[in-house]
Structure formats: structure tokens, C-alpha cells
């Protein structure tokens, strides 16, 4: 029973790790790619690590620490990376409808220019 749950979590994670990398290849521009890769790989790693914890109950606490660590740090890193990409002017895909970032960062840069 424990093994079944553990392997279920492991495979659940593996499928999402694969989907995150697949989205990285298939989607058209950097921003949408980051959407897919951040969400999918985070949940994928979270579920896989928890799966190992379930298969080895002695290690469960340690695996939980690693899993929570991944869940909390991944969004921060991707936010910083996406902002950097936007400020250096990475192009967006053609189907983009609205872009309020110009205005948002325009105010800020005037404030920062000394």
C-alpha cells in the first residue's frame, strides 16, 4: 500500500517534470515558456520528492524539507528572471493582447535616475 502510493507520487511527478520541459520546447515565447516550466517542474519535483519520502518513511521529514524548499523558492527565482527578461526587451509572441508593463516600469525608471 505504502509502495503503491509512493510510486504513484513518483510517476505523477515524473510526468509533470517531463511536461514542463516539453512546454519549454513547444510554446512560442519566453514568457509563456516560463509559465509552463515554473509551475510544472515545481509540482513535479515536489511530488517526486514526497514520493521518495513515502517509500522510505525514515526519511520523510527530510524529504518534506526539500519539497517545501522547492515549493517556496521556485516562484521567487522565476519572478526575478522574468522581470530581467522584460527589462532587457525580450520580444513577446504575436498573439499578445495587452502590455501594461511599459507604463509600470516607466514610472520606476524616472524615480531611479539620479
Amino acid at each position: 500500500m505504502r509502495l503503491i502510493l509512493g510510486y504513484f507520487l513518483l510517476y505523477f511527478g515524473a510526468i509533470f517534470l517531463f511536461l514542463g520541459a516539453f512546454g519549454l520546447i513547444r510554446l512560442p515565447d519566453l514568457y509563456t515558456r516560463m509559465q509552463a516550466s515554473t509551475k510544472s517542474t515545481t509540482l513535479g519535483a515536489f511530488a517526486s520528492v514526497l514520493g521518495v519520502g513515502v517509500i522510505h518513511p525514515d526519511w520523510f521529514v527530510k524529504c518534506l524539507v526539500v519539497a517545501l524548499f522547492i515549493l517556496l523558492t521556485a516562484p521567487v527565482g522565476s519572478s526575478a528572471l522574468m522581470r530581467a527578461a522584460y527589462k532587457t526587451g525580450v520580444p513577446m509572441t504575436d498573439s499578445t493582447t495587452i502590455d501594461e508593463g511599459k507604463e509600470f516600469f516607466g514610472e520606476e525608471q524616472e524615480g531611479e535616475a539620479k
Partner: peptide, 10 residues
């Protein structure tokens, strides 16, 4: 069909 319509909002 890849249903995406990306945009940046506040």
C-alpha cells in the same frame, strides 16, 4: 490548437 492569449496586466 494551443489556446494561449498572453498579456501583461496590473
Amino acid at each position: 490548437s494551443m489556446p494561449i492569449k498572453p498579456g501583461i496586466v496590473k
